[in-house]
């Protein structure tokens, strides 16, 4: 490799390679019981990164949650109503 990070398993097989990996680090998750309506979450440690929301199931009704960068770092906007997804993952 020219640069970066590789992880090898015990057999010497490369199982992680920063040269070929696609972007994406799971940064946060929540279930419906862990999230209060209308309360936003912020991620200053991921300033400068684009974050994405993955809803894991059918009740996620994607589009309920949004990410903005008005503060200079990612912020998850949680609406005051309509929190229905049991499991949501935020990716940096």
């Amino acid at each position: 490799m020219a640069f970066g990070v590789q992880v090898l398993d015990a057999a010497g097989t490369i199982v992680f390679d920063s040269n070929t990996a696609f972007a994406g680090v799971p940064a946060d998750f929540f279930t419906v019981s862990q999230l209060a309506a209308g309360v936003n979450k912020t991620y200053p440690e991921f300033a400068g990164r684009t974050m994405r929301i993955v809803t894991l199931d059918i009740s996620g009704s994607a589009g309920i949650y949004t990410i903005d960068y008005a503060l200079g770092y990612p912020r998850l906007i949680v609406p005051a109503a309509g929190i229905v997804s049991p499991t949501v993952v935020v990716m940096a």
Binding site: V5, A23, A92
Partner: peptide
């Protein structure tokens, strides 16, 4: 932290 050649985040001690 580690980035891929296009600058995308692929590993971070801040993440999971």
């Amino acid at each position: 932290q580690a980035e891929n050649p296009s600058g995308g985040l692929v590993m971070s001690a801040d993440g999971m």
